[in-house]
Deep mutational scan, measured.
Amino acid sequence: MSSSSWLLLSLVAVTAAQSTIEEQAKTFLDKFNHEAEDLFYQSSLASWNYNTNITEENVQNMNNAGDKWSAFLKEQSTLAQMYPLQEIQNLTVKLQLQALQQNGSSVLSEDKSKRLNTILNTMSTIYSTGKVCNPDNPQECLLLEPGLNEIMANSLDYNERLWAWESWRSEVGKQLRPLYEEYVVLKNEMARANHYEDYGDYWRGDYEVNGVDGYDYSRGQLIEDVEHTFEEIKPLYEHLHAYVRAKLMNAYPSYISPIGCLPAHLLGDMWGRFWTNLYSLTVPFGQKPNIDVTDAMVDQAWDAQRIFKEAEKFFVSVGLPNMTQGFWENSMLTDPGNVQKAVCHPTAWDLGKGDFRILMCTKVTMDDFLTAHHEMGHIQYDMAYAAQPFLLRNGANEGFHEAVGEIMSLSAATPKHLKSIGLLSPDFQEDNETEINFLLKQALTIVGTLPFTYMLEKWRWMVFKGEIPKDQWMKKWWEMKREIVGVVEPVPHDETYCDPASLFHVSNDYSF
C-alpha cells in the first residue's frame, strides 16, 4: 500500500475517532442539560424564597438545595474531563465542556465548601437584617432599607448623617470582619485549585478570550484597560469633585475643607457610591423646571407596579418582548415591611425554565424608576439567551450584562422620554440651562461612581493577591479612598471594622 493511502486511512481513522468522541460528548451534555435544568431551578427557587423571606427554615432549605446542586456539578465536572477539548471540533459542544470542566467552588473539600456557603449566607443575613438603634431610645431601631437609606438620601443634618453612617459600619461591618477574612482565604483556595493566581484573578477570567475568531484578550489586559480608563475620566471627575465640594461648603460651611477631601457621609447614600441625591444641593440653574421627576410621580399617584409597567412599555417600544406572566405573578416589587424580612437590594433573577423575576423594595422616586429599567434590562438579556444550552446561558461577561441594564436606564432618564410619559409637563422646553442641569444630574450618577468602583475593586484585587496584610485592611482602604476618590472618613476606623463589606456587593460576593 502506498504512503499516500496510509495517510488517507490515518486521517479517516482520526476523523472517525473525533466524531465518536464528539457524539459521546453531545450525548453526555444532553443528559447533563436535562438534569441540570431541574436541580438548578430547585436551588434557585430555594434561594429566592430565602431572599424574599429570611427565616431559619428557608436558609436551611437553601443550603440543602445548594448542596445538592454543588454535588451534582462536582460529579458532572469530573465526568466532563473525559472529553479532551482538543478533539472537539463543534464550537458549541467545546464551549459547554469548557464551562463544565471549570470546577468553581466544587473543587473544595465537602467541609470547606459547606463552610464557604455558611459564611456567604451568614454575611448576607447580617447585611439584610442588621439594625441600628437610637442610643437615646433603644426601642427605636432602623434597618438599612428603608430607614438608614432614607436618612442618607434626604437628611441635611450633618450629625444625623454621621450617626447613620458610623452606626451601620459599627453594627454590621464589625460583625462581618471575621467572616470576610475567612471568605478571602477560602475563595483564594478555590481559585488556585482552578489554576488561577487568586480570587481576583478568577474574577478577571470572566473577561478572558482565547482564540475565538482570531481574537484574544487576557486577564492582564483587563487590568491595563481599567487603569487606562480611570486615567481618562480622572480630569472630568476632579472637576466634578471640586464643583460638588464648593456646593457642599454652602450646605455644611464649617465641615468642608476648600482644598481637601469630601467627608464620606455627605455624598448622597450610605457609601458615597452614587452622588445622585446631591442634585438638589448642586443644581446649576435651580429656577428651571426640576428634571428630577420624583415629585411628579408622587403627585400622579405612581406605585411600584406603574413604575415597572412603564419600564416594560419602554422596552417594547424598542422592539423587545413583554415580561412574562410569571414575572408579574412572582416578582417581589415592594418591601414586605413587618410581614417578613427580605433582601431589599435590587436584583434580577433568571431562575431557569423561563422563570424570570425582579426583587426590589421599590420606592416612588426617579432613582428607583431608573433602577427598574436597569434591572429589567438584565431580564431582557436573560430572556434573549434563554434558548441557548444551559451552560451557555450567561452574558458575554459581567460588565456587558451591567452595560445592557445601564444603557436602558440612561435612555429612560432623558427629558424627551420623561416628557413623553407625562412626568415633565407638555410645555417643558429644553435649552442650554436645562441641558446643563440634566448633564450634571447624569454626571453625579455616572462620573461620580467610577472612581468609587475602581478603587473598591483595586482594593479587593490587592487583598486577594495578598498585597495588603490583614492587619492593614482598613488603613489601606482609607488611604486609597483619600488618594483615588478624594473622600475622607469622618471618624477614624481601626482594624475591627470592615467598611468594604458594608456594601451589598462585597458582603454578597459580587464583583463589579
Score class of each variant (00 low, 15 high):
residue 19 S to Y: 14
residue 19 S to G: 03
residue 20 T to M: 04
residue 20 T to K: 04
residue 20 T to N: 07
residue 21 I to R: 00
residue 21 I to L: 03
residue 22 E to K: 05
residue 22 E to I: 04
residue 22 E to S: 04
residue 22 E to R: 02
residue 22 E to T: 14
residue 23 E to P: 07
residue 23 E to I: 06
residue 23 E to Y: 08
residue 23 E to D: 12
residue 24 Q to R: 02
residue 24 Q to C: 02
residue 24 Q to V: 01
residue 24 Q to F: 00
residue 25 A to G: 07
residue 26 K to W: 08
residue 26 K to L: 11
residue 26 K to A: 15
residue 26 K to P: 02
residue 26 K to R: 14
residue 27 T to Y: 15
residue 27 T to R: 12
residue 28 F to Q: 00
residue 28 F to N: 00
residue 28 F to C: 01
residue 28 F to I: 02
residue 28 F to S: 02
residue 28 F to W: 04
residue 29 L to S: 02
residue 29 L to G: 00
residue 29 L to Q: 02
residue 29 L to R: 00
residue 29 L to D: 00
residue 30 D to K: 01
residue 31 K to V: 01
residue 31 K to N: 02
residue 31 K to D: 00
residue 33 N to V: 07
residue 33 N to P: 00
residue 33 N to L: 04
residue 33 N to I: 02
residue 33 N to M: 04
residue 33 N to Q: 13
residue 34 H to M: 05
residue 34 H to C: 03
residue 34 H to A: 15
residue 34 H to K: 01
residue 34 H to S: 15
residue 35 E to R: 02
residue 35 E to P: 01
residue 35 E to Q: 12
residue 35 E to A: 14
residue 37 E to C: 00
residue 37 E to F: 00
residue 38 D to F: 00
residue 38 D to N: 03
residue 38 D to T: 01
residue 38 D to Y: 00
residue 38 D to W: 00
residue 39 L to N: 13
residue 39 L to E: 14
residue 39 L to F: 12
residue 40 F to V: 07
residue 40 F to I: 05
residue 40 F to T: 05
residue 41 Y to R: 15
residue 41 Y to V: 01
residue 41 Y to P: 00
residue 42 Q to R: 14
residue 42 Q to W: 00
residue 45 L to K: 01
residue 45 L to W: 01
residue 45 L to H: 03
residue 45 L to S: 02
residue 45 L to M: 09
residue 45 L to N: 01
residue 46 A to N: 06
residue 46 A to V: 03
residue 46 A to M: 05
residue 48 W to F: 00
residue 48 W to A: 00
residue 48 W to Q: 00
residue 48 W to T: 00
residue 48 W to P: 00
residue 49 N to R: 01
residue 49 N to V: 03
residue 49 N to P: 00
residue 50 Y to R: 03
residue 50 Y to H: 05
residue 50 Y to K: 00
residue 51 N to S: 04
residue 51 N to T: 03
residue 51 N to H: 09
residue 54 I to K: 06
residue 54 I to M: 07
residue 54 I to F: 06
residue 56 E to F: 06
residue 56 E to M: 12
residue 56 E to V: 10
residue 57 E to N: 02
residue 57 E to C: 04
residue 57 E to S: 05
residue 57 E to D: 07
residue 57 E to P: 04
residue 57 E to W: 06
residue 57 E to A: 06
residue 57 E to L: 05
residue 59 V to K: 10
residue 59 V to C: 13
residue 59 V to F: 09
residue 59 V to A: 13
residue 60 Q to H: 10
residue 61 N to A: 14
residue 61 N to H: 11
residue 61 N to K: 07
residue 61 N to C: 13
residue 61 N to M: 13
residue 62 M to A: 10
residue 62 M to W: 09
residue 62 M to N: 05
residue 62 M to L: 08
residue 62 M to R: 09
residue 63 N to R: 14
residue 63 N to I: 10
residue 63 N to C: 11
residue 64 N to D: 12
residue 64 N to P: 03
residue 64 N to M: 10
residue 65 A to S: 02
residue 65 A to G: 03
residue 65 A to E: 03
residue 65 A to V: 13
residue 67 D to Q: 09
residue 67 D to H: 09
residue 67 D to W: 13
residue 67 D to I: 13
residue 67 D to F: 11
residue 67 D to E: 09
residue 67 D to M: 13
residue 68 K to V: 06
residue 68 K to R: 13
residue 68 K to Y: 04
residue 68 K to E: 04
residue 69 W to P: 03
residue 69 W to A: 14
residue 69 W to Q: 13
residue 69 W to N: 12
residue 69 W to L: 14
residue 71 A to I: 06
residue 71 A to N: 08
residue 71 A to C: 09
residue 71 A to Q: 11
residue 72 F to W: 14
residue 72 F to R: 06
residue 72 F to H: 14
residue 73 L to W: 13
residue 73 L to C: 11
residue 73 L to D: 03
residue 73 L to T: 07
residue 74 K to N: 11
residue 74 K to P: 03
residue 74 K to E: 07
residue 74 K to H: 12
residue 74 K to W: 11
residue 74 K to M: 08
residue 74 K to G: 11
residue 75 E to K: 15
residue 75 E to H: 15
residue 75 E to I: 14
residue 75 E to D: 14
residue 76 Q to G: 02
residue 79 L to H: 08
residue 79 L to N: 05
residue 79 L to A: 08
residue 79 L to Q: 08
residue 82 M to F: 11
residue 82 M to G: 14
residue 82 M to E: 01
residue 82 M to A: 02
residue 82 M to T: 02
residue 82 M to S: 05
residue 83 Y to N: 01
residue 83 Y to G: 01
residue 83 Y to W: 05
residue 83 Y to Q: 00
residue 84 P to G: 07
residue 84 P to Q: 06
residue 84 P to L: 05
residue 89 Q to V: 12
residue 89 Q to N: 14
residue 90 N to G: 15
residue 90 N to P: 15
residue 90 N to F: 15
residue 90 N to M: 15
residue 91 L to C: 14
residue 91 L to R: 14
residue 91 L to M: 12
residue 92 T to P: 15
residue 92 T to N: 15
residue 92 T to W: 15
residue 93 V to Q: 02
residue 93 V to N: 02
residue 93 V to Y: 03
residue 93 V to L: 06
residue 95 L to M: 13
residue 95 L to W: 12
residue 95 L to Y: 10
residue 96 Q to T: 03
residue 96 Q to P: 14
residue 96 Q to W: 03
residue 96 Q to C: 03
residue 96 Q to G: 03
residue 96 Q to E: 08
residue 96 Q to V: 04
residue 98 Q to T: 14
residue 102 Q to C: 10
residue 102 Q to N: 11
residue 102 Q to H: 12
residue 102 Q to L: 08
residue 102 Q to T: 14
residue 102 Q to I: 11
residue 102 Q to M: 06
